[in-house]
Design a protein around this nucleic acid. Sequence first.
DNA 1: AGTCTAACCGGACCGTAGTCCGTTTATTCC
DNA 2: GGAATAAACGGACTACGGTCCGGTTAGACT
Lengths: 204, 204
Amino acid sequence: MDARPIPLPLARAAAPERADAVRNRALILSAARRLLAERGVDGLTMDGLAAEAGVGKGTVFRRFGSRNGLMLGLMDEIEADFQARFIGGPPPLGPGADPVERLVAFGRERMALLGVQGDLLRAAENSPELRYASPPRAASAMHVQILLNQAGYDSDPVVLAFTLLASLDATLVLHENRAENLSLERLADGWEDIVRRVTAPRAS
Amino acid sequence: MDARPIPLPLARAAAPERADAVRNRALILSAARRLLAERGVDGLTMDGLAAEAGVGKGTVFRRFGSRNGLMLGLMDEIEADFQARFIGGPPPLGPGADPVERLVAFGRERMALLGVQGDLLRAAENSPELRYASPPRAASAMHVQILLNQAGYDSDPVVLAFTLLASLDATLVLHENRAENLSLERLADGWEDIVRRVTAPRAS
DNA sequence: AGTCTAACCGGACCGTAGTCCGTTTATTCC
DNA sequence: GGAATAAACGGACTACGGTCCGGTTAGACT
């Protein structure tokens, strides 16, 4: 099988950007963080952002493509940190622990992250198109698939990984938590239960 | 108190509507179906719809609340049919079969439905708010919870039902199917595998 | 039938996401 | 340093979802 290392997203590398482009990206991101802090996710408009950053609206769209793209840009740091933790951090999230324990930890940590950064993560997930196509998501999917394999799950890790990740969607978790009044602890316990059952040796 | 009925789909109950309101609702729905057929989901704009139906834009919004509400209205018939089948139709989807078999059939049938009506169902799911609040979804969640209970699942049926339903989201399934090239059969097999594992008697 | 009232209607209006294209500027090559 | 060029810039413009409110009409009551 393909044991190649995970195709690290984060790929900021390649494309040589002009100095002004780099500067404006930074200006826009910091302006966005400022606006988010003081006006909330819904209070962030692309016009307002352009004004706050002191650039033209076209520049904002050139750099980030869309409002969702911007949100993904804002999440980049958060996701990169999370990714670093499950790829190379300390166990049980990082390598060294039993794969099932790592899966359990993965879900628990994700829930905890959603508890803190949920609104932003949800805002970044809203576009149906970009939702499943983002590099952090691909990395998570790959990670979960690998752990499932290591745990001896022998049916269809690709499909199961999608299902498991779907239960960690920011939109879903926030709905369960806020509208259905399910605590994050309960959701995390549910995750653990599912993971253990699914990876348990077959009875038959 | 404003007791005005927010036009929730399926709410066919109480509220006596004026004859003109009823007529316009029908006009709008049929115009919407016409436009969907000839221009696709994205080609359906609220202005265009109002024009096609021969009513004012305000009327469209008064009747359906939002673009998503309209989509839910369009789906109403489809969902009601599906619901009737899993509540009272022939087994294995309907009552009479083993609960696990019914769960398996539920997922398979849903996948099949998505294969046919996927675009419309996805359009109706797009609003983060309405997404999980719609009556058809609540009915599905309840149904799955009950079946899980009957199958002897003793941990947390509420949470597990959310997870399982999440894997049947139109947006997710269409992505898996189209962007990831996973056939609906494979997804359905994955569903079956997960359901069987999760409801299997505990090993320990 | 006539009157009254609440509900309904319609389209002008608003805010926002996203596009377009003429202008400006960083970078490269002499 | 200066010219050439490709990229970046910016703000006017468009399209769409959603709101608002003055005018209209269905239905009830007499």
